[in-house]
Design a protein around this nucleic acid. Structure first.
Lengths: 340, 340
DNA sequence: AAAAAATGCTAAATCGATTTAGCGATATTT
DNA sequence: AAATATCGCTAAATCGATTTAGCATTTTTT
């Protein structure tokens, strides 16, 4: 309840100028030749009265807000993003940064609107899962010297730091696993999207299938608001292609829809149809049968993201870092040996 | 790339004082008797050059940061919190507020540390899922006139606005549902915690059980870091009480642990043991059998939270609002009529 | 017609920090 | 001993907004 302290109060209390206090608080005591004795005294006093500089004033003067924006597809929709949010939070706090979040719903317009909303609002850095079509806005952030780290997917037209996983290789490996377990008519259900992560997963599928001379069954879902419409699309697709004996869902919520579709069709996993989904989650681990997944190394990913961001912010590192991390095939019951 | 505009530039450009510009931008034109013509002219110009006031400067002068802190247990652990985060985000943005988040892990020390970190950092308001023992810090926020809305649970020692659900009644209803479906030895698995939401759920259980003269089986789990230890505790509990024919899990992650425990014990749901869990999620909906749950009205809850917060911030409404919303029993396969 | 009130606008102080330029005292060099 | 350098610290400008007090005019009242 005591009135808020300012650097001016500190100076008055100790009989010194605010300049000196500021230098000491910013670790410039040595550089500015403030005596060790005075430095010590000020730091001790500041500690005692628990003085915290006013961030607004600091921000106004320095032009830095110490705020990082985390722009994800939907923080409530994809556990991956919530987990990343959780993991980067602590490290950011340790370095004195706060994180604000926002969700684009994977909509270009929403993303543009949000970037424009935050622009000129002194956000120090952006961590973004970019929808397609926001290249220009991202580029202009970069042009202004604002650090941007893209995550989950890349914008290939841009030279911009990003942290993604080996989508092609890991999908390739997963499809090969199905093939070596005896499945021959393997379907790939994905979104009708050109985003790099989706394109790479599809490429991994196509590669494996063509290497083994198998037929390719690809279903690209439209963007329906309602899950039910998506489930219906999957039901129709599987129903019209009864020779399919295995299916790969290219992302976790498609996986969830897929399981429902399979339940509706009354198919048995893996006897009638084997299943692998991208992204692990409780549902897949505890489902009966448990579902084989390609799991992303979330802590590893998060570490890289926040390291890149903090490095760009604190060390003014403007190098473009392209981090590609391996994903892991976790084999469970849903992809067991055919007819075993 | 054009240098950032300030209110001063606007004034210079139009040949008027910054005072006038400021009044107009703050909607005080009428009140301050600025002519309609000039007001129009300024607004048009501001629109044209896309001027956005510097939030740091505004914040420094007004003492308001336009930032709300959302402090949850774990944004990645409980879908409820991620969903709330998502739903309050847009409304907050509409009113010009940003949301920063942080996770307490339900630890008192972490919560205190975070509040202290953000204190004196000009956060305009706090939305908190409070662990026990942070009453004093919350009270001192309130004393300073900073709006606080507690969510998911209450701190009964405090007069503080909160948004919770009818934990007692909804649990009572769920247990009654089990009873009327023929179950007699109903267990209640919860956390060893005095938090109000947990206490109320337990009270709802005890009430139903005692009203029907049934035996009470309550298991309070310790706080283990590892899920496996919790699962083991549930396994032992169920194994030592083989007469239990139904179990209520008091929160969603306990529900997930419980399902695993039941799988380990090779019990059939609902034949060997009926199951109800608090909080709905995909896993419960799609599980085989599907799991009966007490579902929270997440959009409804979120609406109330952000309304309360914005009202306190914008209208200076200091009334204590105690919002208690109904929860909904969603009956699924896991609680089907005994021996049906 | 003089006094009072309303109109339309602005000068300047202020919020709390950072940072540039520089001042007086002591120490070192020549 | 005078000139120079170093030491230890500070005055004042600045960031970009808000807000109080008030100054000319014009209009209304008496």
């Amino acid at each position: 309840m005591t009135k808020k302290l300012s650097i001016r109060d500190i100076g008055r209390e100790l009989g010194i100028s605010i300049t000196t206090v500021s230098f000491i608080l910013n670790g410039k005591a040595k550089e500015k030749r403030i005596s060790a004795a005075l430095t010590e005294k000020v730091l001790k006093f500041v500690e005692e009265v628990n003085f915290k500089p006013n961030m607004m004033a600091q921000g106004l003067r320095t032009g830095k807000s110490k705020i990082i924006c985390l722009m994800v597809e939907d923080i409530s929709n994809n556990l991956l993003f919530a987990q990343v949010a959780r993991l980067i939070e602590e490290e950011a706090h340790n370095k004195g940064y706060r994180i604000i979040y926002c969700s684009t719903g994977n909509k270009k317009e929403k993303a543009l609107e949000l970037i424009r909303l935050f622009r000129d609002r002194s956000i120090d850095g952006y961590i973004i899962t970019p929808p397609e079509g926001i290249e220009n806005e991202v580029q202009s952030l970069i042009n202004e010297g604002i650090p941007v780290v893209l995550i989950d997917r890349n914008l290939p037209k841009l030279k911009c730091s990003h942290v993604v996983i080996e989508n092609l290789n890991s999908t390739h490996e997963a499809i090969n696993h199905l093939i070596s377990n005896g499945f021959k008519n393997i379907a790939f259900v994905t979104l009708d999207s050109d985003q790099t992560q989706m394109a790479d997963r599809l490429a991994g599928y196509e590669k494996a299938v063509s290497e083994h001379g198998l037929k390719s069954y690809v279903k690209k879902l439209g963007f329906h608001e309602s899950p039910d419409l998506n489930i219906n699309e999957i039901v129709s697709f599987l129903d019209e292609n009864r020779d399919i004996d295995a299916v790969f869902f290219s992302t976790n919520y498609i996986g969830v829809w897929g399981l429902q579709a399979i339940k509706i069709l009354n198919l048995l996993i893996p006897k009638d149809i084997a299943v692998i989904s991208f992204d692990d989650q409780d549902l897949f681990k505890f489902y009966s049968p448990s579902i084989t997944v390609v799991a992303q190394p979330v802590p590893h990913i998060s570490n890289h993201i926040i390291k890149l961001m903090l490095n760009a912010l604190e060390e003014k590192d403007t190098t473009v870092h392209e981090i590609v991390l391996p994903a892991k095939l976790i084999v469970r019951e849903s992809s067991a040996l055919k007819n075993a």
